[in-house]
Amino acid sequence: MPLIRKPSPAAPDAVPARDPLAALRDGSPDERFAAARAAGGLPGGVPALAGALSREADPRVREAILTSLSRAGTPEAVAAILPHVHADDANLRAGTLDALRVVPGGLGPHLPGLLADPDPDVRLLACDLARGLPAGEAVALLVPILDADAEANVCAAAVEVLAEIAGPDALPALEACARRFPGDPFLPFAVRIAAGRIGARTPAPDE
């Protein structure tokens, strides 16, 4: 029988032999990857990961750092992730958003700040993060965007989420928002679809 059952003795070990916090700084990419995964649970791990995130250029190691920080989920860890939503590198921005989406307990307390960020691209990404909140809270954060945000693209991102979760109360704000940007070709389309869906979700008055 060529199929064997005993554990192969040479099964390589995934755990780095070195101190992870040191390996995180100057190991090979594989060592940094393993170190990033181990660091989250060590004393001093979160600040070490925060520093590594700012330096790290390898996208896979960055993923592992972001996973460890989001799993740690402490205010300190979230604070280390947040600034990278401004990154010039689209790849790091995407990774940052993905990590923020999976922070345990959600981003609740940070969202109002992100939705008021001076950078419209951050506000836009924040609308998408609001999808993770309970529907009522998300609606309460996103409807004011429709009323007041100066950027049509940010409003469009809010409409995208509201189309899925809002009730009929949000209809006037949606329609007013489309009127606020008369030259915009996309918003009227998006609002029409959103209104159609919300209407379809609204029980007839006699039910």
Binding site: A14, F33, T67, R71, R101, V102
Partner: peptide, 17 residues
């Protein structure tokens, strides 16, 4: 999403290059 991400990373770690 959180569990999938972690499971995928665990499996990546469990593969040889």
């Amino acid at each position: 999403d959180a569990s999938r991400r972690l499971a995928a990373e665990n499996l990546y770690d469990a593969l040889v290059p």
